[in-house]
């Protein structure tokens, strides 16, 4: 509860109720707050038990189950089943929505790749909005988004000169071009190497995923990523119940807790079932091409073979599976 004092008013109801029921927590003075922060998680067990809702708003069984939950890759099928059920129950309690959370496995013979036509992108940001809705991002003003659309001057490739906050009356602005940047799903991902607890890894279909329950929130991966593609949940994402996407995946768009890192996962909940990612579906200009890199007849293979393509910061050797191309 200590953390929530400097957050704005739309924090989850669950916390409000618990504060009243506990009846003990008032706004602590700054010195006490600093002391508590220094004490950290190790010493805070007793403190949080007094101030936070009982078992973090869960039943005792769910709280214990979550505490002893292993890393995703090491869990047995029955343990995964139990974890998925816990996620669904938690979403029902926190958000008031019946969601379906699955762990659809990767398809054999599929490695996903993405190509984006820079000469077609007009900077509408429809992809960003579609991503926010599909992936259950918080709707409050300071929530995260996986896609950043950069506005650059013609002839300019210096990302430090790019503007992601552009908001003119109409786009495209003459003399500018637009470069959407999201997770490149590197074949040699530096974020995976940086993670000290193996909470992030590359799946067999090439998607770099995060086990949000295993992430300790150290944010080493964010500094390791050269594409600014990893995002930290500084606060609990709040979503109105009618805007929650109930079709979720364990490694994808399930509701995430506060204090973990997340990233674009090529809409794993959709693409593993054969559907296009939400950004590709939303793009009004058809600039986005998605497909299986191992299929020689796929559209992305045609683009790679016949169009002038480039990777962002390819000199770093991270081997992105996300290409930009021009007509």
């Amino acid at each position: 509860m200590v953390w929530n004092n400097h957050e704005n008013s739309n924090m989850s109801d669950q916390h409000d109720v618990s504060t009243q029921s506990a009846g003990t927590v008032t706004v602590p003075d700054p010195h006490r707050r600093r002391l508590l922060k220094q004490l950290g998680i190790a010493g805070a067990a007793g403190t949080t038990a007094a101030s936070a809702p009982a078992w973090g708003g869960s039943t005792l069984l769910d709280a214990l189950g979550g505490f002893f939950q292993d890393q995703y890759q090491r869990m047995s099928p029955s343990e995964i089943e139990a974890a998925l059920a816990r996620i669904e129950r938690k979403a029902k309690r926190d958000l008031g929505v019946d969601i379906h959370c699955d762990n659809t496995p990767p398809q054999a013979g599929v490695v996903f790749g993405y190509a984006l036509n820079v000469s077609r992108c007009r900077g509408y940001r429809d992809c960003v909005q579609a991503c926010i809705q599909e992936n259950n991002h918080g709707r409050d003003p300071s929530s995260t988004a996986y896609i950043r659309v950069l506005e650059l001057d013609h002839g300019q490739m210096n990302l430090e000169q790019a503007d992601q906050y552009y908001d003119p009356e109409t786009v495209p602005v003459p003399g500018k071009y637009y470069l959407p940047v999201q997770c490149m799903q590197c074949a040699d991902p530096p974020c995976v190497k940086a993670c000290p607890v193996e909470a992030t890894w590359m799946e067999p279909d090439g998607i770099v995923v995060v086990d949000y329950d295993w992430c300790i929130g150290c944010r080493y991966c964010m500094t390791a990523c050269p594409y600014w593609a990893r995002h930290f949940n500084w606060k609990q994402p709040t979503i109105p119940a009618d805007q929650v996407n109930p079709d979720t995946h364990y490694l994808g768009n399930r509701p995430r807790p506060v204090g973990v890192v997340e990233k674009c996962h090529f809409c794993i909940q959709r693409t593993r079932k054969g559907r296009l990612p939400a950004c590709a579906e939303a793009c009004p200009t058809g600039a986005r091409v998605f497909g299986n890199l191992l299929d020689p007849h796929s559209e992305i293979r045609y683009v790679l073979a016949n169009k002038p393509v480039f990777q962002l910061k390819s000199e770093l050797g991270t081997e992105p599976k996300f290409w930009y191309f021009t007509d």
């Binding site: 957050e7 704005n8 007009r122 900077g123 509408y124 940001r125 429809d126 960003v128 909005q129 003003p141 300071s142 929530s143 988004a145 950043r148 001057d153 002839g155 300019q156 210096n158 430090e160 000169q161 503007d163 992601q164 906050y165 552009y166 908001d167 003119p168 009356e169 109409t170 786009v171 495209p172 500084w234 606060k235 200009t285």
Partner: peptide, 29 residues
């Protein structure tokens, strides 16, 4: 010809931070 239109809202700035006032000075290529 596809007509220009209003873009979707720009991304939010993390709470406690300020949006940069303007773009950095362009360097001479």
């Amino acid at each position: 010809a596809i007509q220009p239109r209003k873009p979707q809202p720009p991304p939010a700035v993390r709470s406690g931070l300020e949006r940069p006032a303007g773009r950095p000075e362009p360097v001479v290529p």
